[in-house]
């Protein structure tokens, strides 16, 4: 069990806001909840956070009952991918009563102007408990932003590579069809595909795809 959570449970008879205020005044660790269902990505983010900041990190992977699960950990900061549709479930947290219990989007916590923009660009949204000082938020956010955007970039690259491979396969098949049907060599087949694509204002991969589909239909 993370130390932060333990502290909360020891003080569970106090209102949570008091518990939290005590925790801060003692300079205790931050508790950060990361909402992420992809295990590898979650591990990458946890490692990055732990390397830079002295904090407890809890990962929540399953969106069912999300708001309740998060509230149970009484985190100081909640990090979630901006593209995650379950993000709307966190809006319920912003309605919790009690000033120190209320996580707010980081963007309103005063110092966050440029940080908010950077976070949106990087694709991370944060909910930060009201009243937490900007100096303590910033390193967490900087790390999260860097890590989220790196993972995102890797994913995009992977998707691009996959797509390129798929297209190569289709183009190869189209070339094969042309070579067989017209008795031409590979180079001439590719030139024909490219010329057709240019004449029609389409991509070579699209023309190849159409050819493969049509030939499949014609049997």
């Amino acid at each position: 069990m993370p130390a932060g959570a333990e502290l909360v449970s020891r003080e569970s008879r106090l209102p949570r806001s008091v518990a939290r205020a005590n925790r801060w005044s003692m300079g205790a660790k931050l508790t950060v909840v990361v909402v992420e269902e992809d295990r590898d990505r979650a591990i990458a983010i946890v490692d990055a956070l732990k390397d830079t900041i002295d904090c407890d990190v809890i990962v929540i992977a399953d969106a069912s009952g999300l708001a309740r699960k998060i509230a149970a950990h009484a985190p100081d900061i909640v990090l979630i991918d901006i593209d995650n549709p379950t993000r709307d479930m966190l809006e319920e947290l912003t309605l919790a009563s009690g000033p120190l219990e209320r996580p707010v989007a980081m963007f309103v916590s005063g110092a966050a102007g440029g940080l908010a923009q950077a976070a949106i660009e990087a694709g991370v949204s944060a909910y930060v408990v009201d009243g937490l000082s900007p100096e303590r938020i910033k390193p967490v956010m900087d790390t999260a932003i860097a890590r989220f955007s790196m993972v995102r970039q890797m994913r995009t690259e992977l998707a691009e590579t996959r797509r390129a491979l798929e297209e190569r396969k289709v183009i190869d098949r189209a070339k094969g069809l042309l070579m067989k049907a017209k008795g031409i060599d590979e180079e001439a087949a590719y030139a024909l595909l490219r010329k057709t694509a240019m004449d029609r204002g389409r991509r070579v991969a699209d023309v190849a795809e159409a050819l493969v589909t049509a030939s499949g239909l014609l049997g």
Binding site: N84, R87, A105, F107, I120
Partner: peptide, 15 residues
Amino acid sequence: APSWSSVRDMLAFGR
């Protein structure tokens, strides 16, 4: 957009 909070933030922060 993937969520309403995202729509709101994109609008509020000028995206």
